[in-house]
Every structure is written in C-alpha cells, then in structure tokens.
Design a protein around this nucleic acid. Structure first.
Length: 670
RNA sequence: GCCAGCGUAGCUUCAAUUGGCAGAGCGCCGCAUUCGUAAUGCGGGGGUUGUGGGUUCGAGUCCCACCGCUGGCCCCA
C-alpha cells in the first residue's frame, strides 16, 4: 500500500504498483496529458519512473506551469540535439548534455568542426525529431552491462565516465528515443512534443570533465521553451539586456576606454568614469573612518623576495606579469648567454632577484604591521588602501571592466586576535551589506568558499582551515542573508565569503569579498605581545567590499543601465538656454549650481531647445535647467527631470536644495 | 592558453551583385538661424577596409600568419 500526499493536501492510496503518470491519470486524463515530470519527496523524477510499492510519499506532478518542468524539458531538448548531431555527422562521441541557465548544452567529440553555419541544418533535424514525437524511454541496467552497451555503441567517453565518475554505482540508467540511446540520469519529459520552441545559440570549446589537461570537446548551446512566444520574449529580453552592457555604455557615456596600444585588460578611466569611482571611494572612505580603519599607501612593485615569502611567487607565477630584473643583472646574464628557461629557473630558485608588479596588496600591509612592535592593546589593526594590483589573466578571459589585468581593490587587512575574529569578520560583512543596500543592489548571492579537501593547491594545516572555515560560516549566518557553501571556491590561503552578482548576459562575478587567513601571519612570522607578555600570532582578514573598482563600476553601469543616481552621476545637471540671448543669466545660474557643489555644465550651442533636451536625455543627465526669457524675468529656473519630464519653474535656491537633498541622501529612484 | 565567430570613417543592426571607381546615417568642423521641453537648414573635412605577407590584370571580398574584439572552456591570489 502506497500513501501519496499531494500538494493540495489530498491523500491517495494505491495498492498496485504505480508511476506518477498513473496517478495523474487517476486524477484526470487532462492532467495525465499535461504531466511532464514529477517531484517525489522533493526529488525530481520522470513521469514514468516507478514509485515504491509501500510507504508514504509526497508527490508533486509537474506541468508546463512549473519552472522545474522547463528544466526537465530542456534536458530532453539536449538529447534531441545530440540525436540530430549524430544523424548529421559521423563519429560523434557523446559527453555530457545537461540543462544550463536558460537552455541546455551538449558536449561532443567529432571530427567536423561545428560552426554557426551548421545551426539551421541541426535545428531542422531537431524539428523533425520533435515532430516524429517518439517517446523517451528509461532503461535501467547493471553498470557492467552498461559498460558493454556503451562499448557496443562505440561511446568511449561514456565508458570512461562509467569507469570514473560512476564507478561506485551498482546500476545506471539510459534513455532511449528511437535509434538514439544515451547514458543519462534523467529525468526526461515523456516525449519531445513538450518542446515548443528551440534555438541553437552558440558553439564553444569545452574540456572533457572540465579538465584542461584532457581533450577539448565541442559544446553546442541551445535554448528551449514551451511555446514560440516564450522563446521570442526571451530573445527580446536578451537583446534588451545587451543594450545595458557596460562595454557599450562605457563608451557611449565616456566613462572608460581600453586601448589596444596601452594593453589588453588595462583600463583608462575617463573624466566621467573617474567621477563615479571617486564618489564611490569617498562613500566607502566615510565608513572606513567610522569603523576604525587607518588609510595607508604602498608601492606598485616590490622585491621578488617579498613575494617568495608570501607565497605568491613562484607558485602563482603564471598569473603574474613577468618580474623586472635590474639592469646590471640583465647585462651579466646576457654576457653569460643565459637562456630564457635558465633565467626562469634561477628566478624561481631565488638566485636572481628582481621586482614584481604586485598581484596583491597584503605583503605590503604585512610589512606595515611589522614596522612597529604590536601589543594586544593595539589590536585589531585595520589598514586600508585603494591598492592597484596587476595580474596576468589569460587573454581569452579578458573583457570589459569585469575581467582586467590591472585593477584597484578597495583593500584592507585586519590584524586581529583569535577572540576578535568573529566580530571583525561580521564588521566587514556589514560594510559590504551597507554598500549593496545603498546602491539598491538586491540581486546578489552570498557564497562561502571552502577548500577542496584533497586538493594540493592550498597552504596551511587542516586544523587552521577548519577554524577559518568555521569562522566564515558563523559570520555568514550572522549576516542574515541566505548563503551557500561551495567547496573548492576558497583562496589558496584561506576560506572566503563572497558577494556574487550577475551581469547583463548572465555571467556571475565576485564583487565584495571577506577572507580569513592564518597562513600569511605564519609565513611572515607576525606577532603581538599578549596580556601574558608572551608573543602571539594574529589572524588576518582580507577584505574588499567593492572587490575591485573596475569590476564594481562595470557591474554598476549595467545595474543602473548607465542612469546613475544623482550622487554618482558624472554630470548632475545641465543648464540649457532657449536662445543665446539668455546666456548671461544662464551662466549665472550655472555658477550658482557649481558653487553649491553640483556637477553642472551648460549647453550654449545655437541649437533648438528640443535638441538640447534630447542630447541631455540621451546622455542620461539627471536634471536639466531650462533658461529662457520667462526665467530671466522672474529670476527663477525651469527644472526638467530626466525621468519625469518638466517639473515647472521654481526658485533657484529651491532647486538647489532639492538636488542637494537627493545627493546627500544618496537617493536611488526607481 | 584552448574552441568558434568577428574586424570597413570617432560611433552604428552599417552599405559596397560572381573579386571590378570604398558609400550612407549620426557625431565632428564651418555658415546661416535665436528658436520654450526628445532631432533647424545648408555646406565641409574624415578611410593605406586591424597589421603583415600571398594568389590575381585587379582584393574590403580568396588564402596564410600575427594583433585585437565577442561568446564559451580552463583559470580566477
């Protein structure tokens, strides 16, 4: 006897063996037809997967109305795509093909190099498969049988996966649809007619099992929807989002430039972009003061030895700009006919010294800590700096402001006692929360990055890691926002708490970060005198609420679609003269606004007022001051709001007060 | 770094029939106009088609290499 609890509270009982689809049929034939998948005790299963004979379960039947059904359907769409590709090309090896984001992908190994030109052909084949509407059938079998089946099918990657990833499994499942058979966990929709609209979106390289040392496969991306309208709406939304792309707006609004001749990933902040950045820095500066930070400045380069001690060099050499070597050393090496390989070896071994463009600020702040004897009474010491660092990111990874080679962190390092750790981490997180709140950025997730237990890439003892990870988890809980712990996302020296946001094309970027570090204090032998007059080792917290100014401003441009709140707007107001006859009075107005600390400019071109308004609107200037004969006579100003349009005439003092209030409150308007 | 695609004026979904005179709009500059809440009119300058090489009578167009950009993978201290 199986007792089934449905979401509406009703209970059904079955004495025969049933599948979700049978239960749906019992309720009504319409529902049976509409059921695409089911959720049993919160676990996604196929509509035809057998349920236990006895016991009690909670069951949710998933129809097109349920977003989870959309995911199941997309997974099926991936199978349809794989089947189409196998029909069209020879020697196709299947890898993985899951649901992902707003669509799905499938990784293949095949000789033919798929390009976008092939899409119409593949899409047409997929349409045929959908139309034929052969059901997806689930087949379970023993793992060893499965290996034999995959061998028979010539699917060597699947055999590999059965030997590696699934080695522990007793039995595995396949999904069959016509001639197409694929090792797959499922679930799938009953048949492909649930796929209402399809479109292939991209092709890219992807490493087998995500391992760069393995072969590279071809990954085909697609999106699928229950109907054509949804697909159309989605494609429109994607186009819409692209218009907010910070790379486009950055140029249009003259915020920043990345020049080929300067170098890849090196940002030139234009005057307007610099204003946004400066305002953000000033904003956080106020909080630094309140939270007891001390501002410091450190150089852009330091001796290699410093970074040998910190562990950055040579372990992270690949992601640094190559070291600088002194003239004399260079000459000596040249005289010896020293090869590049030899040079690299000697640098690594420490036989040659040089300077490194800093990849991080911490070693410098550590030296500042060490520059004076420290007592427990001094702690916590909080050293803050807008420190510019340089990292040799791989060229394929660079783009816009979100991934660059030179960037400024709103960095700080806190040197604290073990007892102070929790409170100080909480303080750092609070700061990130304030920033995100002030800017109205609510769409973020918090990730606690933990170490991968058996990986070799971390430094420090297991015991230290456990303490640090525990501290991070405690702090995340105190934060009061949902968070997820993610294994393998830690820094090499410690766990971290990251604030992650999405850009307009759905990519995730880490912004604010707080990291707990027992390693660097150890490596540098940091100490403070305790109450017991014995030396103790401080714990370090690395923290950057914005993350980097470049990435943050890039994301912020997209967040506001370039229309910054008044306090951040590069140009807060523009004075527009109806005719050049009123220029003198308008310049007076402009002067008063400027005196009041408002970033204002004047448009005195011999253009019509409509054209000037249009230009100001397109340049996203928040306020326009229209000055004509009426205003001059009455000694007032006509204010136009970028969003709301003409606000009518008002005294200049009143207008200034209005703007000042909005600036001082850092108001965000919808 | 790897896979795929792209690169024409400051900018743009840019245009340029099978390889056959490099064009348009916006911006910019000049002149006229002095105007009331999203585009005034006229005129003008601006390109060694990313760079280098090759095929050809002839290359923006075809081929090769490099540089850069876009999407993805890996990476991300």
């Amino acid at each position: 006897m199986l007792k089934v609890n449905l979401p509406d509270g009703s209970v059904l009982e079955f004495s025969r063996r049933v599948r979700p689809i049978d239960i749906a049929a019992d309720i009504g034939p319409g529902l049976a037809k509409a059921t695409l998948a089911a959720e049993v005790d919160g676990v996604l299963v196929g509509a035809d997967s057998p349920l236990p004979e006895n016991g009690e379960i909670s069951l949710r039947l998933l129809t097109k109305k349920d977003p989870k059904a959309l995911g199941v359907m997309r997974h099926s769409a991936a199978h349809v795509m794989a089947r189409a590709v196998m029909r069209l090309y020879d020697g196709v090896q299947l890898a993985f093909g899951p649901t992902a984001g707003d669509g799905f992908y499938y990784d293949f190994d095949l000789k033919h190099s798929i390009s976008e030109e092939d899409f119409p052909k593949i899409e047409a084949e997929m349409a045929k498969i959908v139309k034929a509407n052969e059901p997806f059938e689930r087949v379970e079998m023993d793992r060893l049988e499965a290996i034999q089946l995959c061998k028979d099918l010539g699917q060597t990657l699947k055999v590999e996966h059965l030997d590696e990833g699934l080695a522990e499994e007793g039995s595995v499942s396949f999904y069959r649809q016509g001639e197409f058979v694929d090792l797959c966990r499922g679930p799938h929709v009953p048949s492909p007619n649930a796929i209402g609209a399809l479109k292939l979106t991209a092709v890219a390289g992807a490493y087998w099992k995500g391992d760069a040392s393995r072969q590279q496969l071809q990954r085909l991306y697609g999106t699928a929807w229950f109907n054509k309208q949804d697909l159309k709406a989605y494609l429109q939304q994607v186009e819409e989002a692209k218009r907010r792309d910070h790379r486009l707006l950055g140029r249009k609004l003259k915020l920043f430039e990345i020049d080929e001749q300067v170098g890849q990933g090196l940002v030139l902040w234009k005057p307007r972009g610099a204003i946004v950045r400066t305002e953000l820095e000033r904003f956080i500066g106020e909080h630094l003061h309140r939270q007891g930070y001390q501002r410091v400045f450190t150089p852009h380069i330091g001796k290699l030895d410093l970074f040998r001690t910190s562990g950055h060099f040579p372990y992270y050499r690949e992601s640094q700009y190559p070291p600088m070597i002194a003239h004399e050393q260079m000459k000596l090496l040249a005289d010896e006919n020293c090869s590049c390989g030899e040079l690299a070896n000697r640098l690594a071994e420490g036989n040659i010294d040089g300077y490194l463009l800093k990849p991080m600020n911490c070693p410098f702040h550590i030296k500042l800590y060490q520059s004076e004897p420290r007592s427990y009474r001094d702690l916590p010491i909080r050293l803050a700096e807008f420190g510019t660092v340089y990292r040799w990111e791989q060229s394929g990874e660079l783009g816009g402001m979100t991934r660059v080679r030179g960037f400024t962190q709103d960095d700080a390092h806190l040197f604290v006692t073990e007892e102070q750790l929790d409170q100080e981490v909480a303080g750092c997180l609070e700061l990130v929360k304030i920033i995100f709140g002030t800017l109205g950025m609510t769409d973020y997730r918090v990730r606690v990055g933990l170490r991968e237990p058996d990986s070799q890439k971390y430094v420090g003892t297991a015991e230290q890691w456990e303490r640090a990870e525990a501290a991070c988890c405690r702090a995340a809980e105190l934060l009061g926002v949902p968070f997820e712990a993610e294994v393998g996302e830690a820094a090499f020296y410690g766990p971290k708490i990251d604030f992650v946001v999405r850009d307009v094309i759905g990519r995730e970027w880490q912004l604010g970060t707080v990291q707990v570090d027992y390693q660097l204090p150890e490596r540098f032998g940091l100490e403070y005198a305790g109450a017991d007059n014995q030396p103790h080792r401080p714990v370090m917290i690395h923290r950057a609420p914005f993350g980097s100014m470049e990435r943050f401003v890039g994301v912020l441009i997209e967040h506001f679609a370039g229309a910054f709140p008044l306090w951040l707007a590069p140009e807060q107001a523009r004075v527009l003269v109806v005719s050049q006859k009123f220029e003198e009075y308008a310049r007076e107005v402009e002067g008063h606004l400027s005196q009041a600390g408002i970033r204002v400019s004047g448009d005195y071109r011999s253009e019509k007022i409509g054209a000037k308004i249009r230009d100001a609107q397109l340049e996203l200037v928040p306020y326009m001051f229209v000055i004509g004969g009426r205003e001059m006579e009455q000694g007032n100003v006509a204010v136009r709001d970028r969003r709301e349009g003409d606000l009518g005439a008002m005294p200049l003092d009143g207008a200034i007060a209005k703007l000042r209030t909005e600036i001082d409150e850092k108001a965000i308007r919808p």
